[in-house]
Amino acid sequence: MAEPAEDKEDFAEASSVAPRNRDPPALMSQTAPEKKRNAFAELMSPKPKAAKSDASDTKPHRSLKSLSPWKGALLDYIKHPEQFPDQVLRVTPNTVLIKDSFPKATVHLLLLPRSPEHYGLHPHDAFKDLEFLAMMKEEAASAARIAAAELGRQLSPFSATSKARNEAMDAGVPFDDLPPGRDYLPDIRIGIHAHPSMAHLHVHIISRDMHSDRLKHRKHYNSFNTSFFIPVADYPLADDDERRRTSFQNANLSRDFVCWRCKKVFGNRFAELKRHLEEEFESWKKE
Rank of each mutant, 00 (worst) to 15 (best):
S56K: 15
A73S: 12
D54N: 13
S56G: 11
D57E: 09
W70D: 06
H61C: 01
S63P: 02
P48V: 10
A73L: 04
G72S: 10
P69N: 09
S63I: 03
P48K: 15
P46K: 11
D54K: 10
K52P: 03
S63F: 04
K49E: 12
S45Q: 13
L67W: 13
R62P: 04
L67F: 07
R62A: 15
D57N: 14
P69C: 07
K49A: 15
K79Y: 06
A73K: 01
L74D: 00
D76F: 03
A51I: 15
L75V: 04
S68P: 00
H61L: 05
Y77T: 00
D57Y: 06
K52H: 07
Y77M: 01
P48W: 07
M44T: 13
L67P: 05
D76I: 06
L67M: 15
A50H: 13
K79C: 11
A51F: 10
M44W: 07
H61P: 04
L64F: 04
D54G: 05
P60I: 03
P48T: 11
G72Y: 04
P69F: 13
D54Q: 09
K52C: 00
R62K: 14
K59I: 05
P60N: 05
D57R: 03
K71P: 00
S56D: 08
P48F: 05
K49N: 07
A73I: 04
A50N: 06
D57S: 10
P69T: 08
L75C: 05
K79M: 09
K59F: 06
I78A: 03
H61S: 12
S45I: 03
K71D: 12
P46W: 09
L74T: 00
P69H: 05
R62W: 02
